[in-house]
Design a protein around this nucleic acid. Structure first.
Lengths: 194, 194
DNA sequence: GCGTTCATGTAACCTGTTACATGATTCT
DNA sequence: AGAATCATGTAACAGGTTACATGAACGC
């Protein structure tokens, strides 16, 4: 249950509203963490009950009042305690790789289309991360941590993008036609008909 | 909801019991897909209701009867239809990167320990995948898909292992001591005291 | 004797997603 | 005129985890 701690970490650098937190997650840690506003509001209520954050309502006109949350001493202690807890690493879970695994039962044209879309996505994020990486940052411990996070993000996207390109090539009709010639029996896909 | 389809794909290559499926997931697709037996039994019941699998009970002595599930024609159609659906890619979600992001609020010794453990995990899996990759496979479409899946698994683990090594180095006390000399103010961690 | 494997399932719980609900202001 | 942004929240549902429950056989 690291959403709680992700919120506390974010509040460690300054007070924020639930709305701000949602944006913050989206703009800064989205490579490795995401949360919807409904999750965040639910979690903030729990954190307030536990006394790890405190809330202050700021009146506004025309829109609902902002409720700005600050981390408390108890919250800071919780963060430190959490950093000593074992990590629960969420392993890769990939829809597309399941399809690849059962390749012979799939619609190959559709899979190629999916691959193209994924490649685009990885390239977009690679460009995004590269832009962030090029902005110079101060030489602090905080910045060091963020640089390391960005670094694995960059490599991850680069690796996947490359893999998508190679896989598109491997699944090209020409390549599969070659394969079919070698095969004793041909699978039932559109390609064999063409 | 791809668990349903992951099951159908697995059953496409032969009938299996819920127990077998759990083992199968664990042994063959665990890099990109996992499921517990309780999930699998729940899903198999739903698939049977929909007529996408059929069940046959095989009497056994001493242990509960095996219930072996086979994919039906309706199930095969469902798989093909699924392969045309857009992929819902589960994005990276990483506990440890959240900690790195809030590095200055963490217990650095604990983080280094976590890194060492993760490095071990990545190396283990890298070795595991390498062993599988070295086993020669026939030149079929099915094998091509699996090779591509294995390939990204290998690269993923290699990249992460390398990153862990580099990050351990970046977070070493010596390296951080250098950093502290440059800093105008020092963070409140054990290191500054030492 | 003790842990593991085989083999099924249920129930409670936690987390995350999607949709619903409201309503003024600002940008295109 | 219509969409997006600001800003809060609730409710229903889907998916995944953990623990409970049972019990024989087999290897160490």
């Amino acid at each position: 249950m690291a959403l709680r701690d992700a919120i506390l970490v974010s509040l460690s650098d300054g007070a924020m509203s639930g709305y701000d937190l949602a944006k913050h997650f989206d703009q800064t840690v989205s490579f490795f963490w995401r949360a919807t506003h409904s999750q965040i509001y639910r979690e903030l209520a729990k954190l307030k009950d536990k006394g790890q954050v405190s809330a202050e309502e700021i009146p506004q006109r025309g829109k609902p009042n902002r409720i700005v949350y600050s981390i408390t001493e108890a919250g800071r202690n919780a963060v430190l305690a959490w950093s000593r807890q074992p990590c629960v690493q969420d392993r890769v879970k990939d829809d597309f790789l399941v399809r690849l695994y059962g390749l012979e039962h799939m619609d190959l044209d559709a899979l190629r289309e999916h691959l193209v879309q994924r490649l685009d996505g990885h390239r977009d994020r690679l460009a995004e991360f590269t832009a962030i990486a090029n902005a110079t940052e101060p030489n602090t411990i905080a910045a060091l941590g963020r640089r390391r996070g960005l670094e694995i993000g960059l490599r991850y996207e680069r690796e996947w993008a490359e893999w998508c390109e190679e896989t598109l090539d491997a699944l090209s009709p020409e390549n599969l036609a070659d394969l079919n010639c070698v095969l004793p029996f041909t699978p039932t896909t559109k390609e064999e008909v063409a």
